[in-house]
Simulated assay, not measured.
Amino acid sequence: MVSSPIFSRADDLDKYVDLASVPRHRFIHNHPFTMRLRKAVAFDYVMVSGLDIDNFRFGTGQSIDTDFPPAFIESYYDEKFHLSDPFIERAKLSEGVVIESDVLKGVELNSRLAYLLDAFNIKNRLLFPIRRGNEMYGCVGFSRTVPFEADEIDFLGAIAQSTHTAVTRPLMERFAASALRLSSGEMICLKLASMGLTSEQIAQESGYQVDTVNTYIKNATRKVGATNRTQAIAEAIRRHLID
């Protein structure tokens, strides 16, 4: 579980020894991907939530990269609006884009939440769920003062997964393997297996016994939630554990 909600720059990871020591709320400062994205569709704020690692699911709000005002985020989570905001509650059940204006039709917001949103000029929120199979583990959200057009929403939806990957990649590359408790031997065997090597060939390359190679791959397969070697390789690549 990540530490208390203290803001840190999202690209400032050198001082953290493991995932547990990384602040759960991280500030995106001139992120190159989101800066380019803004040139395609203008938006005021962006938020990327969730990591594809056990215990970092969207509903817990345990991992957030954002350029929303830090004072807003701290108040929002300190006052636990992530547990009661109807916009977020709808997102947990949705398979597609969640548009704030649609959610709030006929709904009266908590007066304190409405005050915070207005005070920080956070309007017209959009949220795109990010899923692995049938499970939502994260989201990408945007807001701006002027409502988004339909074609802009379509574009942001098409790029949402890539946005999530680009923003969370540094954290995943540094800490995902340790969070999943993959050993160095398991990582080596997965890497060699991804090159198309058989267990015998992996043993020759790595210096491990064939039985050890098979054990490592079996353990790695279980840890990444796969059912066979091929799925484990695909899952490790998708999670950015190996190239």
Rank of each mutant, 00 (worst) to 15 (best):
V107W: 03
V107G: 05
L109Y: 05
S111Q: 10
A114G: 07
F120D: 01
F120K: 03
F120E: 00
I122C: 09
I122G: 03
N124Y: 04
L126A: 02
F128R: 01
P129W: 08
I130Y: 01
I130E: 02
I130T: 01
N134L: 14
E135R: 11
M136K: 03
M136N: 05
M136S: 06
Y137F: 15
Y137S: 00
G138T: 08
C139E: 11
S143M: 04
F148D: 02
F148E: 00
E149C: 11
D151W: 13
I153H: 08
D154S: 14
D154W: 13
D154H: 11
F155R: 01
F155I: 02
F155H: 04
L156M: 10
G157S: 08
A160D: 08
Q161A: 10
Q161L: 15
Q161F: 14
S162G: 11
T163M: 06
T163P: 03
A166L: 09
R169S: 14
P170G: 15
E173G: 12
E173S: 12
E173H: 14
R174H: 12
F175P: 00
F175I: 06
A179G: 12
A179I: 10
R181N: 11
R181F: 15
S184Q: 11
G185P: 09
E186G: 01
E186F: 03
M187V: 14
I188S: 13
I188Q: 09
I188V: 15
L190W: 07
K191G: 10
A193G: 05
S194W: 05
M195Q: 15
M195R: 13
L197I: 06
T198C: 04
S199E: 06
S199M: 10
E200R: 11
I202W: 00
I202H: 00
Q204P: 03
E205R: 02
S206H: 06
G207I: 05
G207T: 08
Y208L: 13
Y216H: 07
I217P: 00
I217Q: 00
N219T: 08
N219H: 08
A220G: 09
A220Q: 04
R229Q: 11
R229F: 08
I233A: 00
I233V: 11
A236P: 00
A236T: 01
